[in-house]
Amino acid sequence: MAASAPAATVGAAAVWGQLMRQRRGLLGLAMIVVLALVAILAPWLAPHDPFSTSRNAFLPPGSAGHLLGTDHLGRDVLSGVIYGSRVSLIVGLAAAFTATVIGILVGAVSGFFGGLVDEILMRITELFQIIPRFVLALIVVAFFGSGLFNLILVIGILSWPQTARLVRSQFLRHRTLPYVDAARVLGMRPVRIIFREILPNVLAPVIVVASLDIAQAILLEASLGFFGLGDPNLRSWGGMLNTAQGYVQRAWWMSVFPGVAISLAVLGFNLFGDGLNDATDPRLRSGS
């Protein structure tokens, strides 16, 4: 996502801002922790089995035993929302991880070696930035299947260019610095220089982008799920919204609660990434 989170503040008013923002980062972290706890403790937190159907369809929120109501098959909406956190979290983390690993590899090689390698890799990166990500993900998942593994792979593979560009620019800056020259003179092999010497120094902004990537991956998974292309054997928020479409008038609670859950999860990671951004480097501009 090129939507940068520029920090950059100098002067009197900024001190306050920094603090505010940090509070936001902490809030984000707290939201993520809650999300993770819900995901891990789902079997104990959920009042019902998320797949358990019953003849009590369309019970409104507040009904006995169904705090958020039931859906068209009599399944408990709260339990669905609780179990859905697992899918969002797993896809978000795993896809962002995949994207970060690819991004680091491409960016590091490109920035460190430069020349033709850089030229070719950057062209490929550009290619991936130009092809509309969501559209391609939709087509690939529709044709190749929408299991959890496929979702993670597709979202990961389509999300790495930003990290690659960031890592490349950092490597371009670092590769001429004295400590890298020193390592070269000592006869260190490039792989070692890349991973042991330079990478640790440029990791901070990468982590910021990664946390924003998690938010984007959660959003993308939910969008695919909304189109009916989520993992069919798991209860996911996007999938719940997909079925809710046909019942918007009959049962508003089927649409409202999973959507709130998605928004909060994404907000948590965005707040956290934002705070982290400020904390690590006030002048950093991720993206563009």
Binding site: F51, T53, G145, S146, G228, P232, N233, T243
Partner: peptide, 22 residues
């Protein structure tokens, strides 16, 4: 899809796991 979810639940009761593949 809705029928699949009901069958998944029904068959679970008799010890059959349904792997749904739309």
């Amino acid at each position: 899809a809705a029928a699949a979810e009901i069958m998944r639940d029904n068959l679970r009761q008799v010890g059959i796991t349904l792997n749904v593949q739309p």
